[in-house]
Design a protein around this nucleic acid. Sequence first.
DNA 1: GACCTGCTGCGGAGTG
Length: 820
Amino acid sequence: MAKSPGHSTVEQWFKYKNWKWAAFQKEAAAAYLSGKSGLVNAPTGSGKTYSLWLPILIRYINSLPDKPTKQKTGLQIIWITPLRALSKDLFRNMEMAALEMNLKLRIGVRSGDTSVKERASQKRQMPEALLITPESLHILFAQKNSSEIFKNLHTVVVDEWHELMGSKRGTQTELSLARLRSINPSLQTWGISATIGNLDEARKVLLGMKGNVEDSVIVKAKSQKKIIVESIIPDRVESLPWSGYMGTRLVDDVVNIVRKGKTTLLFTNTRSQTEIWYRIIIDKYPEFAGIMALHHASLDRELRDWVEESLHNEKLKLVICTASLDLGVDFRPVETVIQVGSPKSISRFVQRAGRSGHQPGAPSKIYFCPTNALELIEAVSLREGVEKNILEDRPPVIQAFDVLAQWMITLAVGEGFEEKQLFEEVRDAYGYQFINRDEWEWLLGYITTGSPSLTVYDEYKKVERIEGRYKVTSRRVAHRHMLSMGTIVSDTALKVKFQHGKYLGSVEESFVTRMKEGDVFVFAGMTVEFVRIHEMTVTVKKAEGKKGALVRWAGGRMPLSSQLSAFIRERLSDAIDNPLKEKELARLQPLLLLQQQRSMIPDQHELLIEQTETREGHHIFIFPFEGRLVHEGMSIILAYRLSKIKPITFSVAMNDYGFELLSDQYVDMETVMKEVDLFSTLHLVDDIYQSVNATEMAKRKFREISAIAGLMFQGYPGKFVKTKHLQASSSLLFKVMSKYEDNNLLVKQAYQEVLTYQLEEVRMREALARIETQKIIVKKTNKPTPLSFPIMVDRLREQLTSEKLEDRIQKMIKQYSDAD
DNA sequence: GACCTGCTGCGGAGTG
């Protein structure tokens, strides 16, 4: 390669590389080189990394002294990424760029899998630029000379900021940034983000409360790629089930699409769904063996790396994956993207669509494969959302005391801190701008003595106050703290491996502890037989031809976003008036007519309540179309408010469209609603707290909080601590703290998190306010309707095994399928 | 005219 002649401007370098110099890159470079901070907003694959990395290099070149020996050493640039794999990938690209500029810039990577040797070498001398995860950055703050490490730092970049910001990992990053700004007030802070609804807020969170937001910039990449949404519609609507979320009935249509393209990504919503699809395709189309692969978070890293690599080399025709391929490693775009089932949010759908489309400027195309009939409405709603360029917000986390407690201990393990100064610094972080002295004092007490109800236990006295400085002196405390840093708390997972030693991935403890020798299950696309469980490893062997249980993971439950929900309500309301406007809705007509016949289709100004009686009891179905979390909260409140009128208990069930209250007693909703305002927002929080569920929910949330705050030690690496034990000790702590303390911030936080995340309080208030303006219509039906049936099935599914469920559904069909 | 659920991400250091 010809040596480059210096390239002291970005233009020169671009010319040398023969690259096109995009407007947004130019803008970002100019802003950075003029000393500003800001946020770059650009889609994946647009060269957003270089828009900052190159100007950083230019700045570095310009700062070099004439005599090489006089060169300033030590850390100058930090580049934070949410993924280990991403930092390795960036490392290669950046090193290459530095090389081509003929620069002797030392670049380092620091993450959990950085070798001990490399860590030691970094400790002796830091590289000039460091790629790091938020967690590893915190670990640097736990070192004795941390302010020394960061004193020459002039630039910090947070990559994929949209991804971090909405989580506690984002809060963790905010605290680091506040610290770095206090070490060096002239620090330049830059974020790189995909498009989200609240970009302005994203910049504020990044720059902090004292940051000079007015003087910073948001740089937007202009090229809005066109996205084409195409639904896979079966010939007859009957071929789509009323309920269900697997979508495998359309497997033939999907395979036809896959066959047409070179490479296809098939996104599903759950890990077991990828396993099911893989099995079904292999069974029906054996020719896919060897050119199809699976990708989800429970598969072994090596396996996933191989899949990504093979996708790169176009050795694979089809990869079935979950959100594990949403982020990160920038592989070459694939030809076709298919989304199976609701993506739940428009932003996620757009991001996945962006994985397709080869030529610059060419549109991206995404196929939507509905898994049940009603999802045809979602197809239309998604298309509309994409066309109108609607994007969801990522609200930042506020007042996370668990993360702050951990941070205080981290600093105490490191250089120690002076509390007044740290208080000011912490208030610079967006997430703690409202923290007051009382809360701060409570936290100081918590890290030094444990909370008031724990003062008798030495275990919780972690930090000491020595000559005005808060410090950790115990090596044991320091060691344990280092092991439990970070904000990600997951269930105990066991590794799965073959007898000859090849690792397949991991399953959750709850799934595998029910297994005995000889049991068969499906995992990593294979049918395997359980052999034994030892330490934290499950040994299996191949079980050809046998049928087995599917691995189930206890994962998160994404609700439908409120933006998408709004479109769905609108589309549904329009579907009767304009049945032929969209082909999806035209296909759905028979079902919609049946809904109208048996009950009604609510328009946007109406709330539908259906009441029906079956052998199971009296059902009340309510359809706010607000996503399952809001429905969970509403069902709790309604059940509580109804039980205040007369003693009555309900079992509840819900999906993204509505919820069900089932009881053995009849409630006349029409009469009840004349007497009480069931949907009132008055005393909303009180009513939630009055219900038993709120305490149970808070107790479950507390497990995560107590782990982050360092109340519960999760065990040494490789040592097996059962989730059950952790749950038990956290619920004991929760009980003690709730009982003996009025003002325990961590307990309060648990309730607050239930309100904010579990029940989506803000959204629920908005929904209730909307309902108050709506006309409520109660329909008595004598048969389940297309809207209510799926909710009934969802409830049964939780109670019954799958064979029994099948029987039950058959019975229901017989029972209700007589002519109207 | 009616089947299968539940995403992602991270992580010591000092001593012999």
